[in-house]
Design a protein around this nucleic acid. Structure first.
Length: 561
RNA sequence: UGGUGGAUGGUGUAAUGGUAACACAGAAGAUUUUGGUUCUUUUAUUCAGGGUUCGAGUCCUUGUCCGCCAACCA
């Protein structure tokens, strides 16, 4: 067996979550059952960081024959909305995952209330009349123990009565809370009698006005996991300090022992990932909404033309650890190109037109040229035709009057291949009064047509082109990185100071006729330009395209030397 | 500061006491009717000190640096 065969049959190493699951499986825990959950709060749009969590949670469940619940953590009615619920469901499905059950923390409000009553009865929770300021001062600091609230020693009966009345709406918002009675001297600040319930006279997107008390995250999340019998509750590292409380609630309620495991969140260079910052970009109109193609949101990436396959591959390559990761955006772009290269239809589009007149081609004549839709998938994608005529457009940058060495494009006397058409020779550059080249006169080699070239001429360069008469004018939106620096969040001052002012460039370009039939689902490669997709802003009389990502450009590097 | 999580090429990940490897990025070349793709080659890595061991990226210890926690947010 050769080395390469050995390598290809080697098993890919497991990430630490998979290792935990396999150990549990070996130990016969939960009868070999694996149930995970993806628990977003419906207060914003999903981004690439969530994609990692989705791929992990759904991925391990799939791998070990389990299932995943989608659970909306909707315990704070003030910030949450149905609009977000819909977008989140849409994004998860688009990414390619299907949940076993759609649940809401609010489904469990009755049960959670019962749990709270149990804790009170066990003498493990009490109603506190302190204001939030009073509570903050009594809480102590990491180095000094806190002091007990004066209300901590209330009787079980009084607590039961007060809590019931809290629920019945007898007390003003902010006047009372239900707190766990744990340890005001705990080194873990979260264990210093955490608030379990607070009063909010707010309309909930699902339960309406039924409740005026709402559980805090820590009193809802673990119990929700437990109610659903989640076996592996996987979340991000900032919840590590919550685990002690997560376990405390489960233990004292004596309910199903779900376990929490934490991994590090994903960050990308040249963008920001926090919901707060993304919201700011939207609200202050630095971008055009949550689905602006420059946003790291899934809806933005979808609109930009990124595929679910590419995003899943990226998450897979990013890996799962506890190290903080700031991943180079070029890895994501690699995954996007890699997938798009296999599936994108090739089209010719000229961005910055320079008219070429083929002087020895008959005036008024048009012939069709056949061109493959995708050289990576010749059979599956077939071919299309495009018109060739006496007047065509090529890119301005594909002509130089005084070319440097290794410039394989048009220059006086130099020959190139027009992709899928003829070889032409540049005879003359026509200039305007300012000396700008406005037109090229070329001659074509009659027996050099693609497919039956008998000319015997070999040229180094092949250009994309469109016939002037049939060219379709389109709008192209070219995106660049949103920020000028790798990690805007770690820079001095306001992160918005580091926005890239040139993150969006709009141009009119000229496309071959076949592009006019584009649909929103299509993925294109504009040859020698990059990958593009139709934008939803398009109308019947104006097609708008987004540049998903450019092609690798090794000539640019050569030219800069 | 008390607690807590972390530190392996530029970036991310692997090596579970036994030759520090893979991918991206970078560089060089070949092929190419896309200066794309593909292929070949290549540069570069264990935070520091001490200890255990025949052997340490891995274990112990001290230190350094980074992240998170003191919301009636999640």
């Amino acid at each position: 067996m050769s080395d390469s065969t050995v390598k290809s049959t080697e098993e890919k190493s497991l990430n630490f979550i998979e290792q935990i699951i396999e150990e549990d499986l070996r130990a016969g825990k939960h009868d070999g059952r694996v149930l995970t959950r993806f628990p977003p709060e419906p207060n914003g749009y999903l981004h690439i960081g969530h994609a990692k969590s989705i791929c992990l949670n759904f991925g391990v469940a799939q791998k070990y024959g389990g299932a995943t619940n989608l659970r909306f953590d909707d315990t704070n009615p003030v910030t949450e909305d149905t609009e977000y619920v819909e977008s989140i469901k849409n994004d998860v499905q688009w990414l390619g995952f299907q949940w076993a059950n759609e649940f809401y923390a609010s489904d469990y409000f009755d049960q959670l209330y019962e749990f709270a009553l149990q804790l009170i009865q066990k003498g493990l929770a009490y109603v506190d009349d302190s204001t939030s300021e009073e509570m903050a001062t009594l809480k102590g600091t990491p180095t000094e123990a806190g002091t007990n609230s004066p209300y901590r020693s209330r009787s079980i009966e009084e607590n039961l009565d007060l809590f019931t009345r809290m629920k019945n709406g007898e007390f003003a918002e902010g006047s009372r809370t239900l707190r766990a009675k744990i340890d005001m001297a705990s080194p873990n600040m979260l264990m210093r009698d955490p608030i379990l319930y607070r009063i909010k006279f707010a309309h909930h997107h699902r339960t309406g006005d039924k409740w005026c008390i709402y559980p805090m995250y820590d009193f809802a999340h673990g119990q929700s996991d437990s109610i659903e019998k989640i076996t592996h509750s996987v979340c991000t590292l900032e919840f590590v300090p919550h685990r002690e409380l997560y376990d405390w609630c489960i233990e004292n309620l004596a309910i199903f022992p779900s376990k929490q495991y934490e991994f590090s969140r994903l960050n990308l260079t040249y963008t920001v990932m926090s919901k707060r910052k993304l919201l700011k970009l939207v609200n202050e109109q630095h971008v055009n909404g949550w689905d602006d193609p420059r946003m790291p949101t899934l809806s933005g990436m979808r609109r930009r033309g990124y595929t679910p396959e590419a995003i899943r591959e990226f998450c897979e390559r990013a890996g799962v650890t506890k190290n903080s990761q700031l991943i180079d955006i070029s890895l994501l772009e690699f995954c996007v190109r890699d997938h798009l290269n296999k599936i994108a239809q090739r089209r010719m589009v000229v961005f910055d037109p320079l008219k070429v007149v083929i002087t020895n081609y008959p005036e008024g004549q048009t012939e069709m040229c056949q061109s493959e839709n995708n050289p990576e998938d010749l059979e599956g994608s077939g071919t299309r035709t495009m018109p060739f005529s006496r007047e065509i457009y090529v890119e301005q940058e594909d002509f130089m009057e005084n070319p440097p060495k290794k410039y394989f494009r048009l220059a006086p006397g130099q020959m190139v291949r027009l992709k899928s058409a003829y070889i032409i020779r540049c005879d003359e550059a026509i200039k305007d009064a300012d000396g700008q080249v406005v037109e090229l006169h070329c001659s074509y080699i009659e027996n050099s047509k693609s497919g039956n070239d008998t000319s015997g001429i070999n040229v180094k360069g092949t250009l994309h082109w469109v016939s002037v008469a049939e060219a379709v004018a389109i709008e192209v939106r070219q995106y660049d990185r949103l920020f000028k620096v790798e990690d805007p969040s770690s820079e001095e001052g306001d992160f918005k100071d580091y926005l890239n002012p040139d993150s969006l460039t709009v141009v009119t370009a000229y496309a071959e006729p076949a592009l006019a039939n584009a649909t929103l689902e299509d993925k294109f490669q504009f040859m020698r330009k990059g990958y593009f997709c139709l934008d939803s802003d398009s109308s019947t009389d104006k097609l708008v395209f987004n540049r998903t990502v450019g092609l690798k450009d090794t000539w640019q590097k050569e030219a800069n030397k």
